[in-house]
């Protein structure tokens, strides 16, 4: 503890640990990383993420970074982007990827699941209107396919995949639609429904967060 010069003190660490569910060691590690990225400043800006060179090849880099600057992903009820984030916010976003605890009640798992889904939903809902519209979805698919130089450009495949996916989603949610019924986009409830088959709570986590002292701090 106290390895970082401008890091939070022990009491703050405890508070953060309670808030985010990370262990104190993990928080310290993440704080070190935060300092490294922000060049020892209090806050982190979007440009700071450019330094993570591994991110360059990530097709949905923009959305992921944006998720860190999205007010919806902090505990408050506000929406909209922010310019810079402090360590606590950074930690809050990271905490969405924390794995399950060994013993959790059904309710806890359910709420965790919802939390994780909400995070994903926010990431996909680019325009923050509470709905994943077809446009949002297309955008996502386009980004996902952008690694493939041939598929990504071919807008036909992107749009048709996104549309088929959307349609599939609609079918799952609503069943058959009337010809003139208009579906504006997935709401969060719909989104939860789509994810019913996938146990996200066991998938959406990153191992290193569980390890007390990660060794690969760059």
């Amino acid at each position: 503890m106290g390895a970082s010069h401008s890091g939070p003190d022990t009491r703050e660490l405890r508070e953060l640990s309670e808030k985010t569910g990370f262990s104190v060691d993990q928080i310290e590690n993440l704080n070190r990383r935060f300092q490294q990225l922000s060049k020892n400043k209090e806050t982190l800006r979007r440009e700071d993420f450019d330094k993570v060179t591994d991110l360059d090849v990530n097709p949905i880099r923009a959305q992921i970074i944006e998720a860190f600057f999205d007010k919806r992903n902090y505990s408050g009820m506000q929406t909209g982007p922010v310019e810079e984030i402090n360590f606590e916010q950074f930690l809050t976003v990271m905490s969405h990827f924390r794995p399950l605890k060994a013993r959790m009640t059904e309710e806890q798992i359910a709420s965790l699941r919802k939390e994780k889904l909400q995070f994903l939903f926010n990431m996909y809902d680019i325009d923050a209107d509470g709905k994943i519209s077809l446009e949002d979805y297309r955008h996502l698919v386009e980004d996902l396919l952008s690694r493939n130089p041939h598929l990504g450009k071919e807008s036909a495949s992107v749009t048709s995949i996104a549309d088929a996916a959307m349609l599939e989603a609609v079918t799952i949610i609503k069943g058959q639609m009337e010809p003139h019924q208009v579906y504006e986009g997935m709401t969060f409830e719909d989104f939860v429904k789509i994810w019913e088959g996938i146990d996200i709570e066991t998938k959406m986590h990153v191992r290193f967060l569980n390890v007390e002292t990660p060794h690969f701090c760059k």
């Binding site: 990383r33 990225l37 993570v52 949905i60 990271m94 996909y124 996502l140 996902l144 996938i198």
Partner: peptide, 19 residues
């Protein structure tokens, strides 16, 4: 789509966390 996005998200989070 989601699983693919997922992989990328997880990789990105690991990258951002520097591990």
């Amino acid at each position: 789509i989601h699983e693919r996005a997922f992989d990328h998200i997880l990789a990105a989070v690991e990258d951002i966390a520097g591990q």
